[in-house]
């Protein structure tokens, strides 16, 4: 398995280079280094000299991808792309355009992101799997029918509606929790209750339907009939056999998400004033801060690759037939 993991990690290198190149190309199609300088220096009284100075300080005065003036290998290395990319593979993300250290900023913002994302992930998974098993248990009954209707209705509503409606009803009308904000430590609980509940409710419709489909597929198989024939209760059949055998497709969708929890939620963090990595990314895009955008895309890609690897490894844990070679 170790060889497999090493091989997968080596495969990740060209993927990361590719992602980095695409991010670079997309960013600089829209923004030039001059635009970035103007965005940072403001719109008033910005002189061409100030722009050149800003670019030179941050290394944006080089050509983007190919330096025709430089000799030999330097033609490729004395470019914005090379200079900005190489360090990133050593996890040196450098500084944001406002001068703040990106790695430190990411480390600081990771905790608020996880404080929302982890409970949402765990509670959401638990609620959706439980609800799906319940619907499967009562399959083809009116409970199943209305459960599916409920799920479709929940899926049809925009996430923004849950957020604004939840804030209005729970915080503004009922005065039960603060509308927005964040605090560290135990004080965080009162700020997290509402975003977590809203996220779980907002995601329950689609997740439940997906898991219900997986469980229904399993429940018609021979081993389930055998289990019932043995005299096992329906509860034992569902939890002991169906759930266990449906784990592989569940893990495919779930384990890959675990590392990405670090990246935070764009909408929830923005509306609830949670200073996590989601809002960091949005701010950077709005401020045309390439250093931060590139770092966040890089980390996102890396975490996704790690998530896929973890998914593969998790298969071996739930299904003894799977061997990684």
């Amino acid at each position: 398995m170790l060889a497999y993991i090493i091989r997968r990690l080596l495969y990740a290198l060209p993927i990361l280079i590719g992602v980095n190149l695409i991010t670079f190309a997309l960013f600089f199609v829209v923004n030039s280094p001059d635009d970035m300088a103007r965005m940072q220096l403001g719109v008033k009284r910005v002189t061409p000299e100030a722009i050149e100075k800003w670019k030179a300080e941050r290394g944006y005065d080089r050509p983007l991808l190919w330096n025709a003036q430089a000799p030999g290998v330097a033609a490729a290395t004395e470019t914005i792309f090379f200079q900005k990319s190489v360090k990133m593979f050593a996890f040196d993300f450098g500084r944001a355009d406002d001068g703040r250290d990106i790695a430190r900023e990411i480390a600081t913002r990771m905790a608020p992101s996880l404080a929302v994302a982890l409970p949402v992930f765990a509670l959401g998974l638990f609620a959706a799997v439980t609800f799906a098993l319940l619907l499967v248990y009562f399959r083809a009954s009116y409970l199943d029918f209305w459960g599916v209707v409920f799920c479709v209705a929940m899926m049809s509503v925009s996430g923004l509606f849950y957020i604004i409606g939840g804030q209005w009803l729970v915080s503004k009308v009922w005065h039960l929790v603060p509308i927005s904000g964040y605090a560290g430590g135990a004080d965080a609980a009162k700020f997290l209750v509402l975003p977590v509940i809203i996220s779980v409710i907002g995601g329950i419709g689609s997740s439940t339907r997906w898991y219900r489909t997986l469980f229904l597929e399993e429940i018609t198989k021979d081993y389930v009939r055998t289990a019932r024939a043995k005299g096992l209760s329906e509860r034992a059949v569902l939890f002991g056999h169906v759930l266990r055998n449906a784990l592989i497709p569940i893990l495919t969708g779930v384990v890959v998400l675990i590392p990405l929890l670090f990246m935070g939620s764009l909408l929830i963090e923005s509306f609830f004033g949670i200073p996590g990595l989601g809002s960091y990314t949005i701010d950077a895009i709005n401020a045309q801060d390439f250093a931060v955008v590139r770092a966040m895309v890089f980390i996102g890609s890396l975490l996704y690759i790690v998530g896929l690897l973890l998914t593969d490894i998790s298969y071996t844990l739930v299904d003894p037939r799977v061997r990684l070679q």
Binding site: Q167, H175, S180, S270, F272, G273
Partner: peptide
Amino acid sequence: FTREKEQIPYWNKFLQGY
């Protein structure tokens, strides 16, 4: 000074006296 990126929470918190 609390950061409020969205207008709706800002307005509602003002009405609540926060």
